[in-house]
Design a protein around this nucleic acid. Structure first.
Lengths: 192, 192
DNA sequence: GTCTATAATTCGATAGAC
DNA sequence: GTCTATCGAATTATAGAC
């Protein structure tokens, strides 16, 4: 964290570091934790495998650094109640498509505790505040946010990871049109 | 498949074979493909690792055999239209809880092509016939079945694999009450 | 900072005695 | 059928020259 150099002088290693992290995200997203080897990541980044160890200490450290980006969350709490479902689905599709971090986290989290916990933290941080502003009963907020996560993660799983053909084929607008009412209902409808 | 022995005489190896498959399902479900080692599976089954190779040839062969059980599918096509959502959610929760095969398939399928294809086949075989009987437009059947798979697999992912606490805590009846209308809508509601 | 060389494990798979 | 022994390959991680 502490940077002893003045702001205007980027260290030479910075470009190497980001190249490593980019390659790591790509490999973790494509292959999962075990099959994404340090050697392959280093090869993708056009550097020596030992540099990865030098910079990030271990494979676990590399993974932690690769997924330690904070995903910008637009303020959805100001939206009208009726639009929250559509806004959430759209926002999450944006997040999955603009970044490989979430795909990497999902592929790794399925067999890696650290990945699962981080994925859980992201969904908690993003869904709970929204749920709090629209849920009728504060006591139901965690359960309703959790229900939303099942639908949103299920879409990501089948579309970006398992790649079920009918889900991959589904146009983005159509997916939004179908899922938005579901998320809307999980958040705002009376308890069934 | 061909059994040269008379029906009344179980081969001695049969008990060993099923012990191996049981242990394999457990390990694949808990650890995924890479981390479930043949040695660990053999240790769980209290036999020698070389026996696994002798019986199943390779690790891939073992996995294929472990997940090659046919899941009995009750006939849901005879149900009244209005109950199909609840019946499907209940049926899938039963399948996930009575058997480790689906958890193993999901954990493996995320990083293994063979697992992903088998998972896709199961959902296709189970959902398409049901969707065909209740969908208004035959052309929309694959998309609507796919939408159901996103919600059902999302529940399984967060509840049985990632183990999000609020989803794990959710009582089974409550999960059914929330998801049933979703699945019902994906199958029978007019295109949004 | 970068690279070579290699240590130390671990795994899947094989050969062969009994 | 069962087990011992081991091969060959791949991995993470380290030590040290330049």
């Amino acid at each position: 964290m502490p940077d002893s150099k003045p702001p205007g002088s980027p260290r030479r290693s910075d470009t190497t570091r980001t190249a490593i992290l980019d390659a790591a995200r790509e490999r973790f997203a494509a292959d999962g934790y075990e099959r994404a080897t340090i050697r392959a990541i280093a090869r993708d980044a056009s550097i020596d495998p030992s540099m990865v160890m030098r910079y990030y200490g271990s494979k676990e450290g590399l993974f932690a650094a690769a997924v330690a980006v904070d995903l910008k969350l637009p303020d959805l709490t100001a939206l009208p109640r009726e639009e929250i479902g559509r806004a959430l689905v759209t926002h999450f599709l944006d997040m999955w498509e603009e970044n490989e971090v979430l795909t990497a986290l999902l592929r790794v989290g399925v067999t890696n505790e650290a990945g699962a916990e981080r994925m859980q933290g992201i969904f908690r941080d993003q869904l709970l505040p929204v749920a709090r502003t629209v849920c009728p009963d504060p006591e139901q907020v965690p359960a309703r946010a959790a229900l939303c996560s099942t639908q949103l993660l299920g879409l990501a799983l089948t579309r970006y990871v398992l790649r079920f053909p009918p889900v991959v084929t589904l146009p983005r607008e159509e997916a939004v049109a179908w899922l938005a009412p579901t998320v809307q209902r999980y958040l705002t409808a009376p308890h069934p």
